[in-house]
Amino acid sequence: MNVFRLAGDLTHLLSLVVLLLKIVATKSCRGVSAKTQELYAIVFVTRYLDLLFSFVSLYNSVMKVVFLGSAFSIVYFMRYHKVVRHTYDRELDTFRSSFLVAGSMVLALLINSKYTFFEVLWTFSIYLEAVAILPQLVMLQRTGNIDNLTGNYVFLLGMYRGLYILNWIYRYSTERRYWQMIVWVSGIIQTALYADFFYYYLKCWNENRTLVIP
C-alpha cells in the first residue's frame, strides 16, 4: 500500500458517495447513465468473485464489499426506486453497452495471463472497466448543462484512474517482480478516455460556469 494507491481508492469511494448523494438528496438521477452503472456492477461482480476464495487484506475485502454494495444500490435507485427511476433520461442513454460486454469477453478469452475460469473473468472485468465510462461520457455530451454533482462524480472517477497510474509507477520502481501489463495497458486507455472531459471540466471550472461538453 502506498499513498497513490490509497488516494486512488479513496477518490473512487468518494466518487460513489457523491453519486449516491446526488441521487438520494435530489431524488434524481438526471444526466447519469444507467448503462455505465450497470457495466460497473458487472465489473465488480466478475472481479471480486475472489472474495469467495482468496484473502489479501481486511482493507481489500471491505473495499470490495463496499464497491459491490454501492454499485448495486445505484442501479437499484435508477431502475426501481419509485421516484428516482422517473428522472432517468432513457432517451439520452442510448449507447449500445452490450457491444462493450461482448468485445471485452472476446478479448479476455484471447488475451489473458492464465486460461482459467476465474482468471478470464477477472481479465474481462479489467477490459470492461476500461470502457465502462463511455456511455456516461456520450450521455454528458447530449445532456447540455451538467449539474455539479454529476460533473464532480465523473471528475473523481478520472482522478482515481490517474492516481492508479502513479501507484503503478511507484510500485514498479520500488517492488521486485511487479509486472502487470494487461492492467497497465487497459488502465492507460481508460484514463485517456477522460482527457476530453478533463479539458472541458477544468476550462469551465476556471471560467466559473456550469459544465457544458460541446
Binding site: 476464495f53 482468496s54 484473502f55 489479501v56 487484506s57 481489500n60 470490495k64 492464465k114 477477472w122 492508479y164
Partner: peptide
C-alpha cells in the same frame, strides 16, 4: 485462506 494469484489491487 488461499493466497490469491497476484491480484492485490482493487
Amino acid at each position: 485462506a488461499i493466497i490469491n494469484e497476484g491480484h492485490d489491487e482493487l
